[in-house]
Every structure is written in structure tokens, then in C-alpha cells.
Simulated scan of single mutants.
Amino acid sequence: MVIYSLPDYQDFEHKIDGKKTHLFILKNRTGMQVAFTDYGARIVSILAPDKAGNLRDVVLGFNSIHAYLQADEQYHGATIGRFANRIAHGSFHLDGEKYSLQQNNGRNCLHGGPTGFHTKVWDRRTSFKKKIDFCYVSPDGEEGFPGNLKVTVSYELTEDNEIIIRYKAETDKKTVINLTNHAYFNLNGEGQDDVLSHILHIPSNHFLPIDENQIPLDSEAPVDGTAFDFRTPKKISADINKDEEQLGRGNGYDHTLVNQQPISQVAASAYSPDSGIRLEVFTTEPGIQLYTGNFLSGKDIGKSGRPYSSRSAFCFETQHYPDSPNRPQFPSVLLEPGQVFESETIYKFSIKKEM
């Protein structure tokens, strides 16, 4: 059995573009421990108790800041912005003006561009035993986006084993925004093979079909009769290899599922029969990007010394729809001066008793 522990503080002390990086740890009375770094305002480790009372690190990541800088996959646990997911052709129009972004995913701009929020060293404004705030000011024109954008990401660890993530942003110029966290979860423990035996339950009636460039088509589609129907709990493996065009376009699951649940209701959940650990997601966001780590290459060696290969993790990325700046029919991602963008997502961990 793997004995999981948190990384060392000293391995996260470094300078990037003249700013120091650090490791921060939150703990609660039930034994859960969560580590963060100000590089990308990201989650580094989540130690959650399993059904035997042992702690398992259920999120992929690395033991040092240098490993993050050299990683093949740049998004592990990071805050993603200014715009999570894809913007087609790396451009959009706002009030008649065209804004051009870097195309870092074929013809798309992905996750805010190559030097998006995941590459920035955020300021730490407050730190308590159960809460930490990260702040960043994105200057007007950064990665092509308009407006000086002030962003705060707050993480709170509760006694109910919840990680509450609160996002807040303000701008001095009309802009677009779509923030998320890109944690890769494996409820068996990071580095423990694939997640195909995990059981997902997502009460979404619709999903967003994508084209060959992974850009949404014009409208939502019912999940009925497709591999995207998780309204009845099922293993990831149940349908992921079906001969469906949409699965082929994502190389598996890499699609937005429409969320119509209020934040008081579970928007998505995952359960590992092996560990007994259950993850429940609550969010104010209209979509959840289900991604099954299809493009993890095995090049990255994680905290337990094992490679992160394809489908060795899954993501529940709470967010607005991809390509929303070019789709007026989608929920709005516009933010204007004087407005405050606010969003909240909760990742809750518990032990599910087998029936």
C-alpha cells in the first residue's frame, strides 16, 4: 500500500519572474489535509480518508515547483483563466472590435493561452488555518484579452471535508471571463492506475456536442441514448469505448455537461469502490467539463513516483460553455466595469458505505 504524505515546503520555494513561490497547507479536525501553491493558485495535494481510515492523495500533481515548471501537462490543479476551455480560431468580437488570442490548441485558444493564469505567481492576501486567498491582476491586453482584471480565488477547507472555491473578479473595461479549477482526480490515490472503475453520477439531461476541433456545435443535445447519460450511476468504463462520433472527437469524455442544479444540490459525483471515497460537486456554474485524462501521455512522473498515463484521472471542471464569446445563445460570459463576477464551487469528500 502506498503511504501518502504532503510535499515539503522547501521544495516549493523558488522565484519565477522575480516573484517567490511557496507551499501552503490547510488542515481540519477530521484529518483531511490540502496543499496549495501560489504558482497558478493551484491545488497540489488533497489527502482524504478512505474507508479504512487511511489518507489517500486523490489529486494528481508533483512534489516540487521545478516539476510543475517542467511538466508535460501544465494544468494540474491550477486556476484557469482568463477563459477556461476553448475559443474557436483564437478570436472574438466585442462591441465591434476583434480581439485576437494565441492559438495553443490547434486553431483554438485553450485555457487563456500559453501564458494564462496557470503560469502566474499569485499574491497571497490572507491565510488562516482553514482558508487562503490568492490574488492576481491581469493587465489589459494580456494574452489578447481586454481590460485590467482583478481576480481573487479563495479556498476554504471545512470540517465537513469540503473544499470551497470562491472566485471574484472586477474589470475596468468590458471583457469576457470564464474561470475554473483543473484538478485531476483519482479517488484510488494519485498514480494508482486508471479511473475506469470509478462510478459517476451526473444528473444532466443535456450535453454539448463538439466538432472535429472540439468546439461546441450550435446547441445542446439530449443525453438520452448516448454515452453521456450518467443520470443513472455507471462506471466510466461502461461506455467510454463505444463507437460514437462524439467520443471519437474527444478521444473519450472531454465534453461539457449542462448543469441545472442549484448549488444546494449535487451537480456531479464520483465514487471509488476500491477506496470508498466519494467526491460530490456543487456549483453555481452552468456547465461541468467532464474530462477523463485522455491526453495524459505518461511523460509526467507524479508524487508517488508513477507515470500519469491516459485515463489515470478525471476532471470535473465547473465553468461556462466553451467558445461562449462567439455564441450569443450560450450563457453570457461578459463582464463590464462596475460589475462583480462571482462564482462558487464545492468539492466535498466523504466515505460511501457499500449497500
Rank of each mutant, 00 (worst) to 15 (best):
V2E: 01
V2C: 02
I3M: 10
D11H: 04
F12V: 00
E13H: 14
H14M: 05
K15R: 11
D17F: 12
F24A: 06
N28I: 10
V34N: 02
F36Y: 15
R42T: 02
V58Y: 00
F62S: 02
N63Y: 01
I65V: 15
Y68A: 01
A78W: 02
I80S: 01
A84I: 00
A84L: 04
R86S: 05
H89V: 06
G90S: 02
K98M: 14
Y99V: 02
Y99A: 01
Q102W: 13
G106L: 06
R107S: 09
T115K: 14
T115W: 11
H118F: 14
V121Q: 04
W122P: 01
R124N: 09
S127H: 13
S127P: 07
F128K: 12
K129H: 14
F134Y: 04
F134E: 02
C135N: 07
V137I: 13
G141D: 12
E143H: 03
G144A: 10
P146Y: 04
P146M: 06
G147L: 09
G147E: 04
T152Y: 10
S154C: 06
Y155F: 15
Y155K: 06
L157C: 11
E159H: 10
I165R: 00
D172I: 05
V176L: 08
I177P: 02
N178S: 04
N178G: 06
N181I: 05
G189T: 03
V195P: 03
V195L: 07
I202E: 07
Q214E: 10
Q214Y: 08
I215E: 03
P216M: 00
D218P: 04
S219V: 05
E220F: 13
V223W: 13
V223E: 08
G225Q: 09
A227S: 10
A227T: 01
F228V: 00
D229Q: 09
T232R: 13
S237C: 12
A238H: 10
D239N: 14
D243I: 11
G248D: 09
Y253M: 06
D254H: 09
H255C: 04
L257G: 00
V258C: 14
N259Q: 13
Q261L: 00
V266L: 10
A267C: 12
S269D: 09
G276L: 08
G276C: 08
I277E: 07
R278P: 03
R278A: 08
R278H: 11
R278Y: 09
G287V: 03
L290Y: 12
Y291V: 01
Y291D: 03
N294C: 09
N294V: 02
G298F: 15
K299F: 11
S304K: 13
R306H: 13
Y308H: 09
S312Q: 07
F314A: 03
C315W: 08
F316K: 00
Q319R: 10
H320V: 02
P322G: 01
P328S: 13
P331S: 02
L335W: 01
S343Y: 10
T345N: 12
Y347L: 15
S350M: 12
S350Y: 10
E354M: 09
E354H: 09
